[in-house]
Amino acid sequence: MKNVRSIRGLALTGVAALGLIAMTPAVADSEFDIGNGALTANADLDFEIVIPRFLYLQVGSAGTTVDTVTFDLSGVASIADVDSQIGNGTAVDGDITVGVRLVSNAGDVDLEAVGSGTGLTNGTETIPWSQITGTAATGGATGLDVPVVGAAAVTIPATNGVVNRSDTWSFDYENDLLVSGGTYTGTVTYTATAP
């Protein structure tokens, strides 16, 4: 019996010691130097910064507002106006320009534009998306070119893993077609994708 009691006592002492070890807080690196003359003690401390990957795309107003670019050809008063203004191939400027911004820290970004249906619609009538063209104020390597609706995605290269581009886009209605009267509407969805 005496041996069993001793073993139990040792076991309880061991468990208590483990509990104290578990409760001991982690300590930083330390070094002690002693002696005559110059002394040096070094201690290391590690740092860590956690940055999440992100991707931001803004086309037009910030937030949830969806802007509308309007091409208004309603100033027609005579057949001469029709001949000189509608379907004659003279491009019509949109009524607004839109600011765009693309920011990501996830490497290269693909940007594409997908239009609703086959074009802008008015009942059963359609104006194809190819009649809407976009121009970037800056574009190129520092701005943000307007992707062609329905074309393959364009890759925006990152610098040191970061894309930070902004620009201003304007749009034209090519006006190459004589179409039925009415208001034609459609939506282009611009999508940025990071691998």
Rank of each mutant, 00 (worst) to 15 (best):
A28F: 07
V4H: 10
A22I: 11
A113Y: 04
E48N: 12
P52T: 07
T193Y: 01
D29I: 09
F71A: 04
I132D: 03
T168Y: 01
T65K: 00
G182W: 06
S116Y: 03
S6V: 13
L144R: 04
M1L: 12
V15E: 10
G107H: 06
I49W: 02
S166Y: 04
A43D: 11
D167A: 04
V82Y: 06
A151G: 09
V162A: 07
A41W: 02
I51V: 15
P147M: 07
A77M: 09
L102R: 04
N160I: 02
T189M: 06
A194Y: 00
S130G: 12
A62T: 10
A113K: 00
D110F: 04
I156W: 03
N36Q: 13
R101P: 01
A77Y: 04
T97H: 00
G35P: 01
T183R: 13
V15N: 09
R101M: 12
T159L: 15
V66N: 01
V114S: 13
A22R: 02
I7V: 14
G99K: 02
R5I: 15
T183A: 14
G150A: 10
T155F: 07
R101Q: 14
D145Y: 02
G9H: 03
A43G: 13
E174Y: 00
A28E: 10
A192G: 05
I49Y: 08
A153L: 03
I127G: 00
V59T: 03
A11H: 09
V98L: 15
E112R: 14
G14D: 02
A91P: 15
V92L: 10
L20I: 08
D167Q: 06
T126G: 02
G35V: 08
D46P: 05
V59D: 06
S6N: 14
I21Y: 04
I96K: 14
I86F: 11
V103W: 02
T168S: 15
D145I: 08
G60P: 00
T168E: 14
P195L: 11
G19I: 09
I127A: 03
W129I: 00
E125H: 12
D110V: 05
S30Y: 08
D145G: 10
I96E: 11
N122W: 04
S74K: 02
A141L: 13
F171L: 07
T121H: 03
G89L: 05
G94E: 09
L57Q: 05
E112W: 01
D176F: 01
